[in-house]
Design a protein around this nucleic acid. Structure first.
Length: 566
RNA sequence: GCACUCAUAGCUCAGCUGGAUAGAGCAUCGCCCUUCUAAGGCGAGGGUCUUAGGUUCGAAUCCUAAUGGGUGUACCA
């Protein structure tokens, strides 16, 4: 239900019939409950343009507002605010109407777009660590969300499988007499370290490593086979993590750096042809306006750089995949890089003018001391270990609470533990830096996944206890029901905002509001206790059921599962 | 040096396309379990929204500057 745009239409109509000229009507959420559900603040601006008293305009406008349907009443307040209250009957009717809708009242976008979402992008030379968490789950949420709203989403996992380090790795792999499937590769981090030690201690090995880099790039069959087995094994590690995280990335979504390798020469050719690039200090460079430092697209030795690969990827995505919107879910530290690459791609015509290029940046993972995690440090927490630990900790806290069978406990702990990790990350606005803390991630208080899980489980418990077909309408009885119903109808507005801004935390905040409001409703309005009218009981049951459905759907978009019992 | 970004309660963070008395959670202090899952609810205290200017009827929100964090900045990705 698009409440805001419906209200906006009603106000527009009122403006028209009151003969007031105005362009766009922006409806805001009411800042306080006393001010109703929504407010229209545009009158003050109009007053200035029309050189009239705002209160007068507002009073006039209010008389023309249609209050026969969704609006119960409107009031002029303060210097010229118009406060809007939603009608309880209307709320009840709308909320009842979506009870049987598996999209819980959320429609589809009017003009579906083809959207490429580039996320996760692990490096094949290394195991995924906590630093990969944000890209992976923010990207996955964005992809799921856009898909749910009706866009045609193409997931792209731009894995790092190309570069000098692979020469060393496959040379070491060969020396170990191993292929990717053997135990040597179980711990990529260790393997990398061992290879590096070998590289540093033996000049012959180092020479071989360098030779192998060239061989892979020139298509040597033996080296390519080794390389491929290494990549397969490494990708297997990632998939293990994706599986645990419940992330929807498959091999079909992989478009590795190596994929663009054959296209790189063409990129340089294009840039040269239109004179966008010039040679400087032996390297092929693009100098952009307002920047002294160039973007190097080809090294002095002829090698290509990540900007080159990204340009090739942009062209591929725009022209081959025919994307209307391309979202890069990558660390905010690469903001400058993407800004430059986007500019070059547009100037060079690799991407059409109307294609939206967005860098969905996110803050850096910091440690408790406020310092960024270091990738090259040995002390980095592996993502897989983090997830396992989360499940163990979740298990401990559930254990002390209630008697569960071993299987039940395992299942609940997995859902709760993984959910807690994801929720902790997604509930922070993505631009700000992220202070990684076990305590915070695994705390089950406040705005956390467990608060949602708990509310959901309580609702399911009530529905189980009723044990019957629930049939009947929702009738809004009091203020808590009014607010809860209203919140449930705001689901679509919330999702569209989250989709446009690419901000998953908009969804978590919303869900937190829903749950908080449900708890209040539930505290004041008993459902199954004695002495309650059957009609009221059914209405409250339905409202609880719908709340559960919205929580479930919301968490589902965030990639978080729920359990019926905690 | 230049560029980008951030600064809100003791702590962790929302709010930022300008609107009325700036909101949550944690922590602190009260109250509510013979009652649908108390991992819950109700309430209290806690703020010159870094500072100084500007725009405006109105600024945490927009602009400028300063200060203090973080980040990026020619052949890594």
């Amino acid at each position: 239900m698009k409440i805001k745009s419906q209200l906006s239409n009603i106000i527009s109509d009122a403006l028209k019939s009151a003969n007031i000229k105005a362009d766009d009507v922006v409806i805001s959420d009411a800042t306080k409950p006393e001010f109703g559900d929504y407010q229209f603040n545009g009158v003050m601006k109009l007053a200035k343009i029309l050189k009239q008293n705002p209160r007068q305009i507002a009073t006039n406008l209010v008389e023309h507002i249609d209050t026969t349907g969704m609006i119960a009443k409107v009031e002029v307040a303060g210097p010229g605010f118009i406060n809007i209250w939603l009608n309880n009957e209307w709320l009840g009717k709308e909320v009842t109407a979506i009870l049987t809708d598996d999209r819980v009242g959320v429609g589809y976008v009017q003009k579906p777009k083809k959207v490429v979402v580039d996320y996760s992008g692990p490096n094949m030379a290394k195991q995924m660590h906590v630093g990969h968490l944000r890209s992976t789950i923010i990207g996955d949420t964005l992809a799921t969300l856009l898909e749910f709203l009706g866009d045609d989403v193409i997931r792209q996992n731009h894995i790092g499988d190309w570069g000098t380090q692979f020469g060393m790795l496959i040379a070491y792999l060969e020396e170990q007499g191993a292929d990717g499937a053997t135990t040597e590769l179980k711990d990529l981090e260790q393997f990398y370290k061992d290879a590096k030690v070998r590289f540093d201690e033996s000049p012959e090995f180092a020479d071989k490593a360098r030779e192998y880099v060239v061989k892979i790039q020139s298509g040597d069959e033996h080296c390519l086979t080794l390389w491929q087995s290494f990549i397969d094994a490494s990708l297997g590690h990632c998939e293990e993590v994706y599986d645990k995280l419940g992330v929807n990335l498959t091999r079909d979504d992989v478009r590795a750096e190596s994929f663009y390798n054959p296209k790189l020469a063409e990129v340089i050719k294009t840039l040269k042809e239109i004179n966008l690039s010039t040679v400087s200090d032996g390297a092929e460079c693009v100098f952009l306006d307002g920047s002294e430092v160039p973007v190097i697209v080809q090294k002095g030795d002829g090698g290509y750089l990540y900007a080159t690969t990204d340009l090739a990827a942009l062209e591929y995505r725009a022209k081959e995949l025919k994307a209307d919107r391309i979202c890069y879910v990558v660390d905010a530290r690469q903001g400058q890089h993407f800004k430059q690459v986007f500019t070059i791609a547009k100037q060079a015509g690799m991407v059409g003018e109307n294609v939206a290029l967005e860098h969905i940046g996110f803050g850096t993972m910091m440690d408790k001391g406020g310092k960024p995690f270091k990738t090259r440090d040995g002390g980095v927490i592996k993502l897989i270990d983090l997830l396992d630990e989360a499940v163990v900790k979740a298990k401990e806290s559930i254990k002390e609470r209630d008697a569960h069978s071993e299987d039940e406990l395992e299942n609940i702990a997995t859902v709760v533990g993984i959910g807690a990790v994801k929720y902790a990350d997604l509930s922070i606005s993505r631009e700000s830096n992220y202070i990684f803390s076990w305590d915070k991630m695994l705390s089950f208080e406040g705005n956390t996944s467990l608060y949602m899980q708990y509310a959901y489980a309580r609702i399911q418990s009530i529905l189980r206890k009723y044990d019957g077909e629930i049939e009947g309408d929702i009738i809004i009885g009091d203020e808590t029901e009014h607010r809860l119903a209203h919140l449930l109808l705001k689901f679509e507005d919330t999702l569209s905002k989250a989709a446009t801004d690419a901000t998953p935390h908009t969804i978590t905040s919303y869900l937190y509001d829903v749950v908080t409001q449900f708890m209040k409703f539930y505290e004041l309005n008993p459902i199954l206790k004695g002495g309650i009218d059957e009609e009221v009981k059914v209405s409250r049951l339905q409202l609880a059921k719908l709340t559960g459905a919205v929580i479930n759907k919301g968490l589902d978009i965030l990639g978080i599962k729920v359990v019926d019992k905690i």
